[in-house]
């Protein structure tokens, strides 16, 4: 009699637990406190820096290498050198054709697969001491200048959200994926 009462209680608890989905396949479903606060598009706009190779995520604005050259001498040259070579913090130009040779020299121009990465990285991280201080127009212009130094575009070509993803990098065919989703 005593045991049957316990069994009854146990069965009731089990039913409640099942109703609450605790035994569902996805164990987290029933127990997550669900405390995420839904955020607005405006907020996302402010914190989203992601640029995709397709150009998705690139902002409005534009710039060319002529303006970029001037900006480069003010904001970048001290660390990356004149014409983006021979500076203390790495070359951004040159090294073309060396990647499959005996001494590969990786620079933005000789190695990087997509032009969009230049915009993404400068907007996130450069100039090193004062990241986030350049306007989108300025970042486009600096990107255009680095592309021009590497012979990818002409000096007057305007880089913007439409043209930048189309700028074909010299080493764009030089990469394969080591990861496949089946791993």
């Amino acid at each position: 009699m005593f045991t049957s009462k316990i069994t009854k209680i146990a069965v009731n608890i089990l039913i409640i637990l099942i109703a609450q989905n605790i035994f569902a396949d996805d164990v987290f479903d029933g127990v997550s406190p669900q405390l995420g606060v839904v955020i607005s598009d405006d907020y996302i706009e402010q914190i989203d820096f992601v640029v995709m190779p397709s150009g998705d995520g690139l902002p409005g604005g534009s710039g060319n290498a002529v303006t970029g050259k001037v900006l480069y001498s003010i904001h970048c040259m001290a660390c990356h050198g004149p014409d983006a070579k021979g500076g203390i913090n790495g070359d951004l130009a040159g090294g073309h054709g060396t990647i499959s040779g005996p001494i590969p020299k990786k620079t933005v121009g000789s190695y990087w697969p997509y032009a969009t990465i230049i915009f993404d990285y400068i907007r996130r991280a450069m100039p090193y001491q004062l990241p986030g201080t350049l306007s989108n127009n300025e970042v486009y212009a600096l990107t255009a200048y680095i592309l021009n130094l590497n012979g990818v575009i002409g000096e007057d070509e305007l880089m913007n959200a439409q043209t930048l993803p189309k700028a074909k990098m010299p080493n764009s065919e030089g990469f394969i994926w080591a990861y496949s989703p089946s791993e």
Binding site: I99, S100, G101, P104, K106, V108, Y111, W112, P113, Y114, I117, G174, F175, I176, W177, A178, Y179
Partner: peptide
């Protein structure tokens, strides 16, 4: 891409070698 990619001797670099 620029960093943490693994260049092979044929000039092709492997991405996402996690």
């Amino acid at each position: 891409t620029s960093k943490y990619s693994d260049l092979r001797d044929d000039g092709i670099a492997e991405l996402f070698t996690f």
